[in-house]
Each structure stands twice: as structure tokens, then as C-alpha cells.
Measured scan of single mutants.
Amino acid sequence: GAPPLPPYSAGGREVTMKKGDILTLLNSTNKDWWKVEVNDRQGFVPAAYVKKLDSGTGKELVLALYDYQEK
């Protein structure tokens, strides 16, 4: 199953993602919540729920390892 959710501390809205989604990583300075862009929406997802990909394009991409439903 998915890892436990860290307390929400990102101070911005969250976004929903599905397992297998490829998201653009915008900011990973917060260790628990990373800012991503998905379907032209920006928001935060739990860092433990995604994995960085080596895209080779200069853009940082992450793979959704679990479904996440915004609150």
C-alpha cells in the first residue's frame, strides 16, 4: 500500500494524480510535499508518492507510484 501521508505543510493547493502518471516537477525544496504540474494544473503531491525520472530533456519529471486524491 501507499506510505503514510506526511502532515500537510506545503501551503498551496494539492493536485490529484493516478498511479503511472508522468508529472513535471516544479519544486522539490519541501522534503514532504513536491510541487508538480499535471494537465496544466499546478499543485502539491506527497514526495513519497512519486519517483524522479531521468528525462534527458532538462525538464524534471516524476512518476506517480500511487493514486493521490487532493483533499
Rank of each mutant, 00 (worst) to 15 (best):
A2F: 10
P3V: 06
P3D: 04
P4R: 08
P4S: 09
P4L: 08
L5Y: 07
P6G: 02
P6H: 02
P6V: 02
P7W: 04
P7I: 07
Y8F: 13
Y8N: 12
Y8P: 08
S9V: 09
S9N: 13
S9E: 10
G11F: 03
G12I: 09
G12C: 10
R13Y: 14
R13M: 14
E14Q: 15
E14I: 10
V15W: 04
M17S: 00
M17K: 00
K18P: 01
K18L: 07
K19M: 08
D21G: 03
D21Q: 13
I22K: 05
I22E: 03
L23V: 05
L25E: 00
L25A: 02
L25C: 05
L26S: 02
L26P: 00
L26N: 03
L26F: 04
N27W: 05
S28F: 06
T29H: 11
T29S: 14
T29P: 04
N30W: 04
K31G: 09
K31N: 12
K31M: 11
W33H: 01
W34H: 02
W34N: 00
W34M: 03
K35Y: 15
K35F: 15
V38I: 15
N39Y: 13
D40T: 08
D40A: 07
D40P: 03
Q42A: 13
G43T: 03
G43A: 05
G43H: 03
F44C: 07
V45M: 01
V45Q: 00
V45S: 00
P46Q: 01
P46Y: 03
P46N: 02
Y49T: 04
Y49G: 02
Y49H: 05
V50S: 01
K51S: 09
K51H: 09
K51I: 12
K51Q: 13
L53M: 10
L53V: 10
L53H: 04
L53S: 03
L53F: 12
L53A: 03
D54H: 11
D54E: 14
D54I: 11
S55V: 12
S55E: 10
T57A: 13
T57G: 15
G58K: 09
G58N: 11
K59M: 12
K59E: 12
E60D: 13
L61F: 11
V62W: 05
L63V: 14
A64E: 00
A64N: 00
L65R: 03
Y66H: 07
Y66S: 04
Y66Q: 03
Y66N: 04
D67K: 02
D67F: 03
D67Q: 03
Y68V: 02
Y68E: 00
Y68I: 03
Q69R: 10
Q69L: 12
E70D: 11
E70S: 14
K71H: 14
